[in-house]
Design a binder for these strands. Structure first.
Lengths: 205, 205
DNA sequence: AGGAATATTAAACACTGTTTAATTATTTTT
DNA sequence: AAAAATAATTAAACAGTGTTTAATATTCCT
C-alpha cells in the first residue's frame, strides 16, 4: 500500500505548495490583491487546480490564518516562567501587541478581516477554534488573577473580553490607520504608550 | 447668473443621488459587493457618469462615511447635560457602542475598513479630520476628568487612545464576528457586559 | 496492452473598476 | 433661426477577478 501513501503525500505536497505561494503573495500584496491566478502562476499550475485542494479563496486564507495562531501561541510559551498571574497578564499583553506590530498582515487576517471567518461560519464545525484557544489562555490567566485576590467584584468572562478588546483595539486602530487623530509626534509610539497606561490601571486592581 | 446657478444645483443634485443610491446599496449589500454598475443601475444612468462626480469608488465611500460622523456627533450632543466629567465619559462610551451596534455597517466603514481611509492618505488634506473631531471630544472629556482629580499619574493622550481602543475593540471584534470564543450563552450581551466591566474599573480611577 | 480512475487544464461565464472616444444635449454666438 | 462651441452622457473596450465545466493528460491496475 506504499503507492497509495505516496500519492497521498504528493497530494499533500501540492496543497502545501499552494499554501506557501499564497502566503508569500499575501504577505507582500495583501489578501484581496492576491488572486487565484497569481497563486497558480507562482506554483506553475493552471488556476483550476486550486479548486481541487480548496473549496474557495476563503478556505485558503483560513488555512493560512491557522499558521498565525500557532506562531502567536509559540510566542506565548515563555509566559510559563512568569509566576505572578498579574505580571503574566501584563506580559501577555506585551507579547500580543508585539506580535501584531511585527506581523500586521497576519494579525489583520487573524482578527480583523472578514474573509477567513466567513469560511468558519459557513462550514460544519462552526466555532472559531483557533481564536478560542488564545482566548481561553487569557481567560485562565484572569481566573488566576482572581484567585490571587485581584479584580474583586468583576465578572471573569466579560472582563476577559474587555481586556482582550483593549489590546485588540489599540493594534487594530493602528493597523487600519486610524491613529492620525493623535498628536503627530506621538503616533509612532501610541500603541505601546497606550499599553503602558493600561498597565498603570491594572496595577490598581 | 441664475442659469449657471441652476446648472450648479443640477450637478449637485446628481451627485447627491449617486450618494443616496450608494448608501442604500451599501447598507444592504456591503461596500465590496456594491459595484459601480449597481449604483448606475439604481440612478438609471450609465456607469461612466459616476466618474464625473467622484474620482473612484473610494471617494464615494469616503463621502458616505462623513455622514456617519455627523450622525455619531449628533448622538453625542446629549452629553452636554451630563455635568460630572466621569459620568460624561461613561455616557460617551454608552453612546459609542450603541451607535456601533445599531449601525454596524456604517461603523465598519468609519473605523474598520481600509477603503475610505486610503482615500484620505492619498489626497491633499492628509489628516483624517472626521475621526479627529470625535477623538478630540473624548480627549477634552478626559482632560476634564483629570482636572476633577481623576486619572492621577496618567498621560492624557495615551490614556484617551487606550480608552477609545477599549470600546472600539469590543464593538469591532463583535462586528467582525470574533465573539464566538466567549461562552455561547453570553455572546449576545458580551459587548454591553464588557462595557459594564469597564465602568467598574473607571469607578476606581 | 487496454480500460478505469485520477489529475490537470483550457475555455468559458458573469462579474469587477476604470478609461477612451464617440455621441447626444445644451448653451452661446453669429 | 442657424451654426458653432461647450458640456453632459454613454457605449465600448481593457484588463482583471472568482469560479465552474467539459475536455484532455496522466497514472494505476488488471
Amino acid at each position: 500500500m506504499g503507492i497509495a501513501d505516496r500519492k497521498e503525500r504528493d497530494k499533500e505536497e501540492l496543497r502545501e505548495r499552494i499554501l506557501v505561494a499564497a502566503k508569500s503573495l499575501f504577505l507582500q500584496k495583501g489578501v484581496e490583491k492576491t488572486s487565484i491566478r497569481n497563486i497558480a502562476d507562482q506554483i506553475e499550475y493552471s488556476p483550476g487546480i486550486i479548486y481541487h485542494y480548496f473549496r474557495d479563496k476563503n478556505e485558503i486564507f483560513h488555512a493560512l490564518h491557522q499558521g498565525g495562531f500557532i506562531q502567536l501561541m509559540e510566542k506565548m510559551q515563555v509566559l510559563g516562567v512568569v509566576r505572578n498571574p498579574m505580571e503574566r497578564l501584563k506580559a501577555m499583553g506585551s507579547i500580543y501587541i508585539t506580535f501584531a506590530l511585527e506581523n500586521p498582515d497576519m494579525y489583520d487576517l487573524m482578527f480583523i478581516k472578514e474573509a477567513p471567518i466567513d469560511h468558519v461560519s459557513s462550514s460544519e464545525h462552526d466555532n472559531w477554534k483557533e481564536g478560542g484557544g488564545t482566548f481561553n489562555y487569557l481567560r485562565t490567566t484572569i481566573d488566576d488573577c482572581i484567585k490571587a485576590g485581584h479584580f474583586l467584584g468583576h465578572d471573569a468572562e466579560a472582563l476577559s473580553y474587555m481586556i482582550w478588546s483593549t489590546v485588540h483595539g489599540m493594534v487594530s486602530l493602528n493597523i487600519r490607520k486610524r491613529c492620525e487623530v493623535v498628536l503627530p509626534h506621538r503616533q509612532e509610539t501610541i500603541v505601546v504608550d497606550g499599553l503602558e497606561e493600561f498597565y498603570k490601571i491594572l496595577d490598581k486592581l
